[in-house]
Design a binder for these strands. Structure first.
Ligand code: SF4
Ligand code: SF4
Lengths: 129, 129
DNA sequence: TAATTAGAGACTTAATGAATCCATAATAAC
DNA sequence: GTTATTATGGATTCATTAAGTCTCTAATTA
């Protein structure tokens, strides 16, 4: 069970946006260069982050991406959910009702992890790669 | 990010072994029938559980699988690790030393989840499907 | 010795991840 | 208004992994 590479890229991209782009939008071209990844590929993840409401995009010349002013406290969980989706780690085919204990244990465990990631904000980290 | 179907089967198989087979070994054929899965496929997972030291196998007629007497307190984490392996959910290509904060946050989050799963024993659950 | 069971490996198929390419739309600079 | 610049979206390719089957072998008991 692993997070996709895309989540890795998204985390790093957000880290750059937080620490280096307070106001001016930065283009996907520049971001991709810093991360060492294809611009067209990185653009997919940035689009997901836009749709999740974490960042804002401005098209046209000198455009790019910048943080949403309204949302300074972006959590790790926000980014991960934006890329990976919010599906649960455990989904059995035949759902034997809500009192199933196997599901309860595994889902509670997942909630522990999510709670931790929800409390960690990307702005806490200040060391870009 | 999801656990594989194999983990699902392994959890259910262990649950059956705990609740229904205190002594007599139960064959993979019977287990597979109860779980509604192919015997040869289920056998892969049971073999992994054997190698992880969670259960014991006895070949020959009237053989099958039974719990290891020594290990009554099998945790969810034991089973999951036996099937999924112990690789981390987050592994970046270029490892910038141990002080990397991105890795620290995500791996700490994973540790939260694992700690929870380590404290939940399969013997706590007693409602087979 | 024969029947029964686990174990191991090759193999097939389907799904997903990772990435590229191209075509379109929107915006700003000129 | 035209053009350059940028994001957005879809289609497509390639590689990897999950999921499952088939078959042969080894061990054990009846
Ligand atoms: S017992 Fe729980 S995990 Fe198992 S099949 Fe039923 S609902 Fe799903
Ligand atoms: S900053 Fe951390 S997560 Fe990012 S590439 Fe370096 S070691 Fe990996």
């Amino acid at each position: 069970m692993k997070y996709s590479q895309a989540t890795d890229y998204a985390l790093h991209a957000m880290l750059h946006l937080v620490s280096e782009a307070p106001d001016k939008p930065v283009s996907v071209h520049l971001l991709a260069e810093k991360l060492g990844v294809s611009p067209t590929y990185l653009s997919k993840m940035l689009t997901k982050l836009v749709k999740a409401g974490l960042i804002h995009s401005v098209p046209g010349a000198n455009g790019g991406y910048r943080l949403r002013r309204s949302q300074e406290d972006i959590s790790f969980l926000d980014i991960i959910h934006a890329i990976e989706g919010t599906a649960s780690v455990f989904e059995c085919s035949l759902n034997h009702g809500s009192e199933c204990q196997i599901q309860q244990v595994v889902l509670d465990a997942e909630r522990q992890m999510e709670e931790y990631l929800r409390n960690r904000k990307i702005s806490d980290i200040t060391r870009p790669s």
